[in-house]
Design a protein around this nucleic acid. Structure first.
Lengths: 208, 208
DNA sequence: GCCATTACGCTACGACCCGTAGCGAAAGGC
DNA sequence: GCCTTTCGCTACGGGTCGTAGCGTAATGGC
């Protein structure tokens, strides 16, 4: 229980920040070169210029290391206000598609999600460092659209949350499925169709 | 090139069909008990009551074995004509959700898809034995709805194909994302919302 | 019935990776 | 200067992989 949850007892030699970034960078490099299944801890350590034991002092296993290595890439996702819900959606979906077409995310994301079905701490780590960041974009985009008057002001907070959940699963799921299962490009033509479908469904549901 | 593509030269001792089914059954059992990452070829062989070498005579690696073991579960998916597009969609999505909530598919499906990003033969195997069967349901459902007059008869075959692709990615992706990433149940309430969104989007796009 | 052919079970093996232990040295706080 | 923690390094037992080699079993062709 001597955890560093609150930066307890900062005594002793501090961890090298350079080593940490070098490890994460090396992890992404190995993911690109060898993919998820052939990535080994020893290989990452060698490329990062650190000892293998250093990896195990910071990450319990390969899964958590890879989650952290990939998570920072999701910080790139932004949601600039482009003036309309349609433009906002198309923009962020294109970003997400480009992210998923990078080899390191392509090979790693599904693998760690698959592992997380039998590893609750890993699921929580993924949720906190990847999923929630994406979901926040959905909430922001919906709020903006409501403020613009593009979407009706729903009263029932439960319904609003359920719709937010649905939109998130539909958008993120569709992009992931397109990129990884169908293995087709997430290009402008496809994004436009997806957005049209989504907007049509949202406005139709609103009139109902 | 002495392949068995066309049941060439049927000489020698034939492969035991019982062994094949026992292996696939044992594979699913191990998936349920231990999950994807802890599944080992030796373990599967022991539980199937066959020698490990027999596994390697039939499957090149763990990935292809697991794909075949899980693929048969997708044969259960059916698309009975329930009279309306809405009912058809809700029914098949519920089936798909139930399938994805089974522990063997939950832990295996994403894992093999992740592997397939760096293994073209594996991707082809997944496409042929899993993805195409799902996609056929989309095509059938859309055709039925057109015949009923619920959807307009589009002229442009390219547009039709593009919409079919989109629907497939949206539906399958949303369900997978809901079940595996969000880790929330694919229950009737959620399915109804998804279907409403989809139908709204399709009809709105048709009027446009 | 005999032979060629193929699949089977079994054992053994080298190669690889995992995750940990133990060491002396280095780098901070007090 | 002492204490604490991290560092790099080496070594190790345990496990899995995928293959080779063997003798045996089961089928079709003749």
């Amino acid at each position: 229980m001597c955890s560093r949850t609150r930066s307890r007892t900062r005594t002793g030699r501090p961890r090298s920040a350079e080593a940490g970034t070098a490890i994460l960078e090396a992890t992404r490099a190995v993911l690109v070169e060898l993919g998820w299944s052939k990535l080994t801890m020893g290989d990452v350590a060698t490329r990062a210029g650190v000892a293998k034991t250093t990896l195990y002092r910071r990450w319990a296993n390969k899964n958590e290391l890879v989650v952290d290595a990939v998570a920072v890439l999701f910080d790139e996702l932004e949601l600039p206000d482009l003036g309309s819900l349609q433009a906002d959606i198309e923009n962020v979906v294109l970003q997400f598609g480009a992210l998923l077409e990078r080899p390191e995310t392509k090979t790693a994301l599904m693998a760690v999600v698959a592992e997380s079905t039998r590893d609750e701490p890993l699921r929580e780590r993924i949720r906190a460092s990847i999923v929630d960041r994406q979901k926040r974009l959905v909430l922001e985009g919906r709020q903006r659209a409501q403020d613009r008057g593009e979407l009706p002001q729903k009263r029932d907070p439960e319904t609003v949350a359920a719709i937010d959940d649905l939109i998130f699963d539909v958008v993120a799921g569709a992009v992931v499925h397109r990129a990884l299962v169908s293995a087709e490009p997430v290009d402008e033509a496809w994004v436009r169709r997806l957005t049209a479908l989504l907007l049509g469904g949202l406005t139709a549901a609103a009139e109902q």
